[in-house]
Design a protein around this nucleic acid. Structure first.
Lengths: 205, 205
DNA sequence: CTTGCTTTATAAACACTGTTTAGTAAGTTT
DNA sequence: AAACTTACTAAACAGTGTTTATAAAGCAAG
């Protein structure tokens, strides 16, 4: 029965086509401003058709959510080749911030938005990819502890602290809360705050 | 002419009435889920009436935005009575987190939402209150530097670092990103991360 | 080859949303 | 009492996410 196989393939293609249109529109205009009708227009199908392939708009966001974490994990992988364990950690932080700046909409979806989770927070696998990404951080922090860079022994606790700082810096900027600083200072001040944090944890953690 | 005065008073009362209904509904149901019609229903007026007192929904959010910053500043004031400068800083951080947990919707509006700013980011006074709150942090950090608790000399740079960490911790929790930790661990881990950060900056900053 | 069944797609509708407009009714001034 | 101003609202506009009934196409069996 090659027909059912082809149907499955066609279905997967259609899902991919919808997701690609959605991603494209989302990245260009932001989530809020993109409607199901916009996506339907882009793929030249009726709005109702989308509901045959994705449960609702949140389901569409969830698919992108998974995709986005996959990309962050890919960005994290190369840091493990860095020799010095502390430098490894610094690079990881830089990758996080870099990702946030390059893909603000994706970052939003991964770490700020509440929408795609509300209906899906019951799902246990929602944060599987997120866990993997966080565990990569814990791993690097553990390597710093093992190398004697950090005196503090709880890698997970230290990781949450580091994640919070790097995330806070990114989130405050992306959500335009750095507007309290003059435009010329803004960028440099962020860089300096990150470096200051690096120095501080190297000395005090 | 007492009539124009009374009219002004009535207008102010109406604005207050709308804002109170809006705040009440927003805090109870969240911003997204509250419509102008809901607010209109609550005050027993037509939706169009609200537009005679507030430009649009963003203008309403902006009014609450100002109010919310006023409340945070009030929460910051008592910390200046604390004797030890470092303890003063720790208390300030705790107040920030406390505020975030007690008034998640307000916190959202102040530090996470983008909506009320989009149309208002041209306004220069949008972040006046935010600047005041941040300057209070800078002040306390400067006091720590003066007292010799911190070796690092740039108070604003250090303040941004501290703000980022405390904000990141709050934002990640409020946006349910701590779901990657088990329910029993979550609260304690946050507390520990905050304490670890305090210890780290005391030693290394 | 035709009949019956399943899948796929859509037009139209439903119940909303923020916002604008035209018109009414009440209050104020001349 | 007539003219003007303000406060308010019903209705409409253009949009949203989502559901439902219906039509058309693809496929399997008689």
């Amino acid at each position: 029965m090659g027909i059912t196989e082809r149907k499955e393939r066609e279905r997967a293609e259609m899902r991919k086509m919808i997701l690609e249109a959605a991603r494209h529109l989302f990245l260009a205009n932001g989530y809020e401003k993109v409607s199901i009708r916009n996506i339907a227009d882009a793929i030249e199908y009726s709005p109702a058709t989308i509901y045959l392939y994705y449960k609702d708009k949140n389901d569409l966001l969830y698919a992108l959510h998974q995709e986005a974490f996959g990309k962050l994990i890919e960005k994290f992988k190369p840091v493990f080749t860095v020799d010095d364990p502390f430098e490894r950690l610094v690079r990881m932080g830089q990758q996080y911030i870099h990702y946030a700046f390059e893909n603000p909409e994706m970052f939003d979806l991964m770490f700020i938005m509440t929408a795609p989770l509300e209906t899906l927070e019951c799902r246990e696998d929602v944060w599987d990819e997120g866990r993997i990404a966080f565990n990569m951080l814990v791993q690097v922090v553990q390597q710093c502890i093992d190398a004697g860079v950090f005196k503090h022994q709880d890698a997970e606790r230290a990781s949450l602290m580091i994640w919070s700082m790097v995330h806070g810096l990114s989130a405050l900027f992306l959500r335009k809360r750095m507007m309290i600083f003059s435009e010329e200072r803004r960028g440099k001040l962020m860089q300096e705050a990150f470096e200051l944090f690096s120095d501080t944890i190297r000395k005090g953690l």
